[in-house]
């Protein structure tokens, strides 16, 4: 038996360490417990927020869609149907999660989790207010983009593992769409980053205390908004799950809570991209009178409102038209915008 795998040996070393340095054990315990407590509380808060946010957004979507279409929408459960999304969630929870026989089982089960996990991680760096941020990382913006790109792998796995041609087509569309729209998102975000000179979320916001980047960089802001709408698969860019063509796209075969996870991820992604937009272009928590948190949430939900209204107003683009928009319009424009921005900054400084 090697000494390292012998528990007694490990204990001896630890005991010796504690005896030699009496403060070590205390310090280690405090450090460990503090970190764990912060992490657990943070995670619980994020999960609670993700769920409440999704439920609120589903209610908002039902009601906004209803009022756009001149009908009262859901009215039965609770005051003005307020509890409808809660009941829907409860229904999905108790529903049988069917697994078709011909699927690739491990991948099929893993896909919803892979789609949902990046959502939780992205929330870590979102600056809700000056103080309310789980971890203000130096590369916060990069972390969000990196993990939102992971989302597409989950969708591809879902489409492939479902062993359904509609799902596969939806997944393929989603991948090419995400690759195409990732580029204008990053390029337009970069033109803000070079101005703020930081990838840290708090510094990006702090750089806008005098003037919002939306006013200096309107083109980048519009490109970012359009591209993120496409990235979250919302109408008019919802071709991966185009109902009239591909039934339900990559999640055709999912039911119960697994389907709910896709749904939860979609609505949380809507929140995340709007929050990033607010951080980059609309001055984050900055605003008069009201506290920062309120300003931040207000701006985010106004953006989400615009996205929801767009869904119930426009028809759906065709796949090739969507690609044309990305490769021939958004990418050259955002690239030119970035170059001009860099040039101006170089000349001014």
């Amino acid at each position: 038996m090697s000494p390292i795998s012998d528990p007694g040996f490990l204990l001896t070393i630890l005991t010796q360490a504690v005896e030699r340095e009496p403060g070590f054990w205390n310090w280690a315990f405090h450090w460990f417990s503090q970190e764990i407590v912060v992490a657990v509380i943070g995670l619980l808060l994020i999960i609670a927020f993700v769920t409440i946010n999704a439920i609120g957004l589903i209610y908002a979507e039902l009601k906004i869609a209803g009022h756009i279409q001149r009908r009262p929408a859901t009215m039965e459960v609770g005051w003005h149907g307020f509890l409808q999304p809660v009941m829907d969630a409860a229904k999905l929870l108790v529903k049988e999660a069917m697994t078709p026989t011909a699927v690739n089982r491990p991948l099929f089960l893993a896909a919803p989790v892979i789609v949902f996990l990046p959502v939780l991680i992205s929330f870590i760096v979102l600056p809700f207010s000056e103080k309310l941020i789980v971890r203000d990382l130096n590369l916060g913006l990069l972390l969000i983009f990196a993990f939102s790109a992971l989302n597409v792998i989950g969708i591809l796995i879902a489409g492939w593992a479902s062993n359904n041609k509609y799902s596969l087509l939806g997944a393929l569309r989603s991948v090419s769409q995400n690759i195409a729209y990732e580029i204008p998102i990053l390029l337009s975000a970069m033109s803000v980053v070079v101005m703020a000179n930081s990838l840290k979320m708090s510094e990006l916001v702090a750089a806008q205390d005098k003037i919002w980047f939306f006013i200096i960089q309107p083109l980048a802001a519009i490109i970012f908004f359009v591209a993120t709408t496409a990235e979250t698969n919302r109408l008019p860019f919802d071709i991966p799950e185009a109902e009239g063509e591909l039934v339900a796209g990559f999640h055709s075969e999912y039911s119960g809570m697994r389907f709910a996870l896709f749904f939860l991820a979609e609505y949380s992604n809507m929140f995340i991209v709007s929050a990033v937009f607010v951080t980059l272009f609309l001055g984050g928590w900055h605003g008069p009178i009201l506290p920062g948190l309120i300003w931040f949430l207000l701006k985010v939900y106004i953006l989400v409102f615009i996205v929801i209204v767009a869904r119930w107003t426009f028809p759906r683009l065709r796949f090739d038209q969507l690609m044309t928009l990305a490769w021939k319009v958004l990418i050259p424009l955002s690239l030119a915008n970035l170059l001009v921005t860099a040039l101006v900054i170089k000349l001014v400084r």
Binding site: R70, P236, E243, W312, T313, P315
Partner: peptide, 16 residues
């Protein structure tokens, strides 16, 4: 037809 093209809202307007 508009619903096939992904526009949900006109359907309900026209339904009226």
């Amino acid at each position: 037809y508009l619903m096939d093209l992904g526009a949900f809202t006109p359907f309900l307007y026209i339904w009226e």
